[in-house]
Amino acid sequence: MPLTFTLDPPVDTALRDGILTLWVDVSDADGAVGFVPPVNPDDVRAELVRHLVSMAEGRTRLLVGRDEQGAVAATAFLTYNTHQLMRHWVWLYTVMVHPRHQGKGYGRGLMHAAADAARGFDGIEAIRLTCRGGTGVDDFYASCGYKEVGRVPDAIRVAPGDDRDDITMLLPLY
């Protein structure tokens, strides 16, 4: 059964805790979402609070995918640009599908829902995202229509001696 996606759901304790659990579980499964395993939930909570503040300020929007039990199974954050010359595209951050749901097509559904959401934003023509090289996720994003538009070699230090490229990808919406 596909996920049910909601843009800008009301943020309550259950949603906040669901996102936190998702983020910790994805990170601990070696997902490239800002942390390396094992993660401390308090570190993830601090980053989640930054996302929630940005949402409250109107700079970021949240897309949530829920499974058939109503649990948070996927998320993506879409953030507006504040630079006056770059307001025609948004950033896509913290794209996550719970490890128990991977391989079911939910990631592709999340990417499609994010593009549909962005098409509904006034004046938005494209989505940009960055991803960590060496994970294969850039191939996934390419299969969703994103094109690599930049790469900074060894920009992400996962661990001493393990540096990864920072890859920037773009999806034109029209």
Score class of each variant (00 low, 15 high):
Met1Leu: 10
Leu3Asn: 03
Thr6Ala: 11
Thr6His: 07
Leu7Asn: 02
Pro10Gly: 13
Val11Leu: 15
Asp12Gly: 15
Thr13Gly: 10
Thr13Asp: 14
Thr13Ser: 13
Ala14Lys: 14
Asp17Phe: 06
Gly18Glu: 14
Gly18Cys: 14
Leu22Asp: 01
Trp23Ser: 09
Val26Gly: 01
Ala29Glu: 07
Ala32Gln: 00
Val33Ser: 01
Val33Gln: 01
Phe35Val: 06
Val36Phe: 09
Val36Pro: 00
Pro37Asn: 11
Val39Ser: 06
Asn40Lys: 14
Pro41Tyr: 13
Asp42Phe: 06
Asp42Arg: 09
Asp42Leu: 10
Asp43Gly: 08
Val44Thr: 12
Ala46Met: 10
Glu47Ser: 13
Leu48Gln: 14
Val49Phe: 12
Arg50Ala: 13
His51Arg: 14
Leu52Val: 12
Val53Gln: 12
Val53Met: 08
Ser54Asp: 13
Ser54Gly: 15
Met55Gly: 09
Ala56Trp: 08
Ala56Cys: 08
Ala56Tyr: 08
Glu57Met: 11
Arg61Thr: 05
Arg61Trp: 02
Arg61Asp: 06
Leu62Thr: 05
Leu62Asn: 07
Leu63Lys: 00
Leu63Met: 04
Val64Pro: 01
Val64Ala: 08
Val64Gly: 02
Gly65Ala: 08
Gly70Lys: 13
Ala71Thr: 12
Ala71Gln: 14
Val72Pro: 00
Val72Gln: 04
Ala73Ser: 13
Ala74Ile: 05
Thr75Met: 12
Phe77His: 04
Thr79His: 05
Thr79Lys: 07
Tyr80Lys: 07
Tyr80His: 12
Leu85His: 15
Arg87Gln: 15
Arg87Tyr: 06
His88Gln: 10
Trp89Lys: 05
Trp89Ile: 01
Trp89Ser: 08
Leu92His: 01
Leu92Pro: 00
Leu92Ile: 06
Val95Cys: 04
Val95Ile: 13
Met96Gly: 01
Met96Trp: 03
Val97Arg: 01
Val97Ala: 04
Arg100Gly: 02
Arg100Ser: 08
His101Leu: 12
Gly105Ile: 07
Gly105Leu: 08
Tyr106Pro: 00
Arg108Leu: 04
Met111Gly: 01
Ala113Ser: 06
Ala114Tyr: 01
Ala114Val: 02
Ala114Met: 03
Ala115His: 03
Ala118Gln: 02
Arg119Ser: 03
Phe121Ala: 03
Phe121Asn: 02
Ile127Ala: 02
Arg128Phe: 11
Thr130Ser: 07
Thr130Ala: 07
Gly133Ala: 07
Gly136Pro: 04
Val137Asp: 01
Asp139Gln: 15
Tyr141Asp: 00
Ala142Ile: 04
Ala142Cys: 09
Ser143Tyr: 06
Tyr146Cys: 03
Lys147Trp: 04
Glu148Trp: 02
Glu148Tyr: 04
Val149Thr: 15
Val149Leu: 08
Val152His: 11
Val152Cys: 08
Pro153Lys: 14
Asp154Val: 04
Asp154Arg: 14
Ala155Tyr: 09
Ala155Gly: 05
Arg157Asn: 11
Gly161Trp: 10
Asp162Arg: 13
Asp163Val: 07
Asp163Trp: 11
Arg164Tyr: 03
Asp165Thr: 03
Asp166Ile: 00
Asp166Gln: 05
Thr168Phe: 07
Thr168Met: 11
Met169Glu: 02
Leu170Asn: 05
Leu170Pro: 00
Leu171Ala: 03
Leu171His: 03
Leu173Lys: 05
Leu173Val: 06
